[in-house]
């Protein structure tokens, strides 16, 4: 049975094509591209909310997108226990919808951050099964609001429920930083309690082709498929 997936496009999405190629090349299955004003989603195994500036993000990032028409069906899709992945702006949208806890605030140095970063997995879930303990992945980030924040109680529950999927870490370059954007406990990605929804700031869809500096982004799709 082939793996089916979909990418939602908001007017200001700019990583939707990248996410489509990523899914087409790695899943070999059907990939739908769904416009935000459509009322329903086809039955798929995975939905990606891609990166970008969904509605210009002049309000809080992802705030307007979280009220889009398609979002009702995205929530339904997740409630059916199927996979939902929010990358960068997609992660911000998931926190705005309330499907994931916490919030993404401005990077600690108040500047956009576009570079390769290093992450490793924290707690096991279906999105990172193929990744070894302590394996360092090199994946680019590109965000202005990627600094994950939550209150102490939420943080405690994220830990107790093993919802932290990825954290930033030092890489092989001597000048790489441990926590690039000031996130609490260097959190780079979290899941919901049921662990079928993942939000992450790094862009795995920019690290999978032979010509990319790293192919570590493949591991997320591989984890879901196998």
């Amino acid at each position: 049975m082939s793996f089916k997936s979909a990418v939602i496009t908001f007017p200001g999405s700019n990583c939707d094509r990248d996410a489509l190629c990523y899914l087409q090349d790695l899943t070999k299955g059907v990939v739908y591209n769904i416009w935000h004003e459509e009322a329903s989603l086809p039955q798929v195994d995975l939905v990606i909310l891609p990166g970008g500036f969904s509605f210009g993000d002049y309000l809080r990032s992802g705030a307007m997108a979280s009220k889009s028409k398609i979002i009702n069906d995205v929530i339904k899709h997740a409630n059916d226990n199927r996979y939902l992945l929010g990358i960068c702006n997609g992660f911000q949208i998931l926190t705005e919808i309330g499907l994931l806890e916490g919030a993404l605030i401005q990077n600690k140095n108040l500047k956009f951050l576009g570079k390769n970063c290093f992450i490793k997995k924290k707690f096991k879930n279906n999105f990172n099964l193929s990744i070894k303990e302590d394996q360092v992945l090199q994946i680019p980030v590109a965000h202005n609001e990627g600094n994950f924040y939550c209150d102490n109680e939420t943080l405690k529950s994220l830990k107790n429920n093993e919802q932290i999927a990825f954290e930033y870490c030092k890489g092989e370059f001597s000048n790489s930083e441990e926590n690039i954007n000031g996130s609490i406990e260097a959190i780079a990605g979290i899941t919901n309690k049921k662990k079928n929804i993942l939000g992450m700031m790094p862009h795995p869809e920019r690290a999978y082709s032979d010509f990319h500096p790293s192919q570590d982004g493949k591991l997320i799709i591989e984890s879901l498929i196998t």
């Binding site: 990583c15 094509r17 990248d18 990523y22 500047k111 576009g114 590109a142 862009h203 920019r206």
Partner: peptide, 17 residues
């Protein structure tokens, strides 16, 4: 000059070599 170009998204579109 990475202070400059790290403020730019250089890998969006997924085709940057």
């Amino acid at each position: 000059k990475s202070w400059v170009f790290n403020q730019y998204d250089s890998t969006v579109m997924g085709d940057t070599v």
